[in-house]
Write a protein that binds this DNA or RNA. Structure first.
Lengths: 310, 310
DNA sequence: GTGAGCCACAACGATCGGTTGGGCACGCCT
DNA sequence: AGGCGTGCCCAACCGATCGTTGTGGCTCAC
């Protein structure tokens, strides 16, 4: 199906004449006629009744019209999403089910009119994200550089929001029935957080966490996929893991897992937003406002050293 | 833009290989390659990075992907809307801004998953609607036949809901400041309801209304369009009209018009649904349930003679 | 090194999409 | 009633496009 034919159909239905639609689209009336005929052939249905004064949608045409409008509008949005120059707002997140993506999705649901595209740079190194922001490949990136010196002059980083950590355990775990836990109560337990690349911000975060609370976190080893981790947690009576409270990564539903908030202090993983210092995408303003309105962890909060208290 | 190319793009992005997408779509790998190349040429953007193991979406490709998915899904729905045989639910209403359409829109908003198409038979004669229902061109029609004898054996009519009438007047009208009115209070005023075809259900309704309440309703004369009527109402200090409480036909906003409910008795225009007696479209059940849950006019109600008290 | 797997390019036939030109049906006006 | 304008369809033509087969380049695994 050709979207130009759909556009012709919509305009012809609205204007009531192939001729006018053709003039508007910059083709001959015969071209519109052929496009409509091709559509009708493809759909096996007559879309217009031809009258001496023009055309009028049949019942099938009437039913088809809103769908055609929707497709044309979608095509329009799709093109603007990638049009070089005036692109739609494009933001890099660590994963499509991360807390960052969830927050963006919430924002989009309350502002469905903004054109927002969420992408994922396939790179662990945050400097790749910095370079992408600098080059304009993305308008902002939810990454953190722990050393601000690596930021070029026209790129800046701001605190986005804190992601409180929760403990995720299987039903057989001794802490499974706790309503909430203090970090110190995790001291004797084994915590497994696979897939942390050495040198990444997460590795540094867990390093500081281990040192500060004297915990036992196993952050090495490859990540065999979420399902493997979920299965391991569900079966084990002594392994737990840590997840962001807003993450949709590890969702306990099918495995009867428990999410247990950690408080006193809350363990806050600080998420940052890297964006151009000059001429940021106009749509970013709304995002930043939304970030500022997110609920903050209350009570005592522990943050890694690189996070200034916001 | 060709939707087959979009389909190829979506599958290639999901499967990571042109070859697999091609196999699935029943074409050669080269065809998929050319389709993607055409898309990239049209969008002036590279959608995939080619690797020796297959392809991976670029940032632009990632941003484009959800839009492409949405378009493909829309095309799917559009085709089912007109596919002969298993069509989507299709209901005939008197006008796209009538109370009937508003009720259907409410239903669709609370059940966005149902495929519902709203069409308008361009005919005043309700027998056309009966024939359309009988022939299966529409699954149901919000029309009323005042004489049940004209219904063929396999078509039935049920009460849908009552549409209470309201008075619509301009700001200079003597009744403009009333909060509500009894029908008898309209007795000395001129009411203009243009565009009522002689012999139609509406003509009969207004006939009975005039006789019963001794009103002065001018239902003859052609209808020059809603704008003309709205302008006439806004300027005049003695002309009023009647509209359904749920209608979006004549919307007072831009003309500073007033809607005044009529009570004691409420003037209920009974809307009916004509549908096949056997094998109605399965989606109709939800509509009928929704109609039954609509709020009913309370207090005394006047209805025309053909409407049995529901 | 070699083979397997994947994508791109080239050439070719079939089809499609557009244009021009002509014809038909209907309503309007004289 | 008979021209005349308007709107759509059909026919012919031509260039572009689409899909196919065949081929080559590239990388990775063994």
């Amino acid at each position: 199906m050709d979207t130009e034919a759909l556009r012709s159909f919509v305009r012809a239905a609205e204007l009531g004449q192939f001729q006018h639609a053709a003039d508007e689209l910059g083709v001959t009336q015969q071209a519109v006629s052929k496009r409509i005929a091709a559509l009708e052939r493809e759909l096996q249905v007559r879309l217009f009744t031809r009258t001496p004064r023009g055309v009028e949608p049949t019942l099938d045409g009437q039913a088809f019209l809103p769908h055609a409008r929707s497709i044309v509008a979608s095509v329009e949005r799709a093109v603007t999403a990638v049009r070089p120059g005036s692109r739609a707002l494009r933001i890099d997140v660590l994963g499509l089910r991360s807390a960052q993506a969830v927050v963006l999705h919430d924002y989009w649901r309350s502002h469905p009119e903004v054109d927002l595209d969420v992408v994922t740079l396939r790179a662990d190194d945050p400097r790749v994200a910095v370079a992408a922001v600098e080059a304009g490949d993305v308008d902002a990136s939810f990454r953190t550089v722990t050393d601000p010196a690596v930021l070029p002059p026209d790129v800046c980083m701001m605190h986005a929001f804190d992601s409180p950590l929760e403990l995720l355990v299987g039903p057989g775990h001794p802490l499974a029935s706790a309503r909430e836990l203090r970090p110190s109560q995790l001291r004797k337990h084994r915590i497994w957080v696979p897939g942390i690349a050495a040198g990444s911000e997460w590795a540094e975060f867990y390093d500081q966490l281990v040192t500060h609370f004297d915990l036992r976190i196993d952050a090495a080893g490859p990540h065999f996929g979420d399902e493997v981790l979920l299965d391991a947690l569900a079966d084990s009576s002594d392994v737990a893991t840590l997840v962001g409270a807003r993450d949709r990564y590890l969702w306990p539903e099918d495995h009867d897992l428990r999410r247990i908030p950690l408080v006193n202090p809350t363990l806050a993983y600080p998420l940052s937003l890297i964006l151009p210092r000059t001429n940021p995408h106009p749509g970013l303003r709304g995002i930043i406002t939304h970030l500022g309105n997110l609920p903050r962890p209350h009570g005592a909060v522990w943050r890694p050293s690189w996070s200034a208290t916001p």
